[in-house]
Amino acid sequence: MPADATTTRPLAAPSPAPRAPALPLRWLGVLPFFIFVALFLILPTMHIVLGAFRTTAGDFTVQNILDLNTRSIRNAYWVSIQVSFWSALLGCLIGFAMAAAVVLGGLPRVLRQPLLTFSGVASNFAGVPLAFAFIATIGPAGLITLWLRSDLGIVLQAGLWNVPDGLQALLGEQVRFPRFNILSTAGLVLTYLFFQIPLMILIITPALDGLKREWREAAQVLGASGWQYWRMVALPILFPSILGCLALLFANAFGAVATAIALTGPALNIAPILLYAQIRGDVLGNPHLGYALALGMIVITAVANTIYIVLRARSERWLK
């Protein structure tokens, strides 16, 4: 059918009265979508971005951005980046290992579908209830915390192991190790992994499925060992997907508010919680500093994604 067919047919659904005859009528079909995203995605975001460069009176300024450079805000961003980075990196590694185990590791095929279904559930089991689950497990009165203390003499919060009698000859009476607290960076990473790992599994499984058996066999028959096949063929092919997952997981953790708030209350100083507190009660004393704080968050996730896009473009010359 010729492309101009729409202009010769009466349009029934989208709009009875086209007002801009200069624009081809087919644009009407996507107009609702663009109006929607303009009103509820683009404009609000732009408002924040532009607001970060304005004074209360409406004049242009970069003072808001400069004002971000305080000890507490710097610290909040830094903790946020650390939590997001580590939960993304560990999520990628563990998720990759689990997906590879099921897809390529020779595990029974019946495990595959349950794992994917469970990943769908767990990756969406985020927010407030996830925090509850972890508090009940390794919080101060959690199941594992109590079990470790009563049965093994390990006190997580204190970083102390009261070694039982049988092992004292070997280890001494007490062993010290880094303290663990669910309300800390490590605790947050541990909790975030609960939705990061399954997300990785969900995204990387199709990519692993895309590795053709013939590639492995062709490499083998040309003399390559399993490790050489992974280093020279499989990992380069998977690299863009893995990078994409890393960027997505990073953004996913960076914007997570609910889990952190339910886990620690407003006490933990990370960027999204600081912004949350600012929106609720202007704790920074300058509404436009809130804009700058939000802008910083956008910039950081945008940088993560730009790095991903650049690296991907470099590693994917061989793709159509």
Binding site: P44, H47, A251, L275, Y291, A294, M297, T301
Partner: peptide, 16 residues
Amino acid sequence: PLVIPAIVIVFGYIRL
């Protein structure tokens, strides 16, 4: 929406 944190979007709503 996967890249722009939800908290930023809702912040925009409140101000806009």
